[in-house]
Amino acid sequence: MSFQHRFDNPVPAPRLDHAPVVLRFAQLFPRDLKRREMHRKRKGGDLSHIRHHLTELNHRWVGEEGWIDDFLQTVERVARENLRNEIDPREGKRRWTEVKRVTQRGLVDPWKFTKKGPLREGILTVNKD
């Protein structure tokens, strides 16, 4: 048995001219990080919609300069370690056909496949007024 609330007299919410706070989350792949950083720094692409005098008010809460390169190197290192961890036991058991197959396959992303990517980006925009 379910209980449903009734809304006999709904009242519409007032329309705001501008939103005081906008919070958005997006899913992305590591390959998209460089493009996000380019957007954050306002370099490349169509910049006609940008108010450049407000750009210095933006604040990045996570990561130092160069964090994307460090992160991508870590992903590649972990993928190599995973490959080595797959090959070593097979070599120990002398399963040469499996070693050859895994070696030919090469590196695999070190996360479970997701259609929209393993990373999450959060953007918080606040209107000062």
Rank of each mutant, 00 (worst) to 15 (best):
R101Y: 03
S48P: 07
P118V: 01
D88F: 02
G92W: 11
V62H: 07
E86Y: 03
G44N: 04
G122Q: 15
V21C: 08
K41F: 13
L119S: 06
Q27N: 10
T125G: 12
R105G: 13
R94Y: 03
F71C: 06
P89M: 08
Q73V: 08
K128V: 14
T125D: 13
L57N: 04
L23R: 11
L54C: 02
H49S: 04
H59L: 05
E98I: 07
D109T: 10
V108F: 04
L57Y: 03
L47F: 03
P118L: 01
P89R: 12
F25W: 08
F113C: 10
V75W: 00
L83A: 03
R15N: 03
K93Y: 02
R31H: 12
G122I: 12
R94F: 01
R105A: 12
Q104T: 08
L107I: 13
V78H: 00
N85C: 10
E81P: 00
E64H: 08
F7V: 04
L28E: 03
R60S: 04
L28H: 15
E56G: 00
K34W: 15
K93M: 08
D46R: 15
L16Y: 02
N9V: 04
L28P: 00
I50P: 01
Q73I: 10
R15M: 06
A79G: 05
A26E: 15
I123Q: 15
R42Y: 09
T97L: 12
S48A: 07
T97P: 01
H18C: 11
K41V: 13
R15D: 02
P20M: 02
M38V: 13
E37F: 01
V22W: 12
Q73L: 11
G92E: 15
S48F: 01
R40L: 15
R84C: 06
R15G: 00
K100P: 03
G92I: 12
G66W: 03
T97K: 14
V108G: 05
T97M: 09
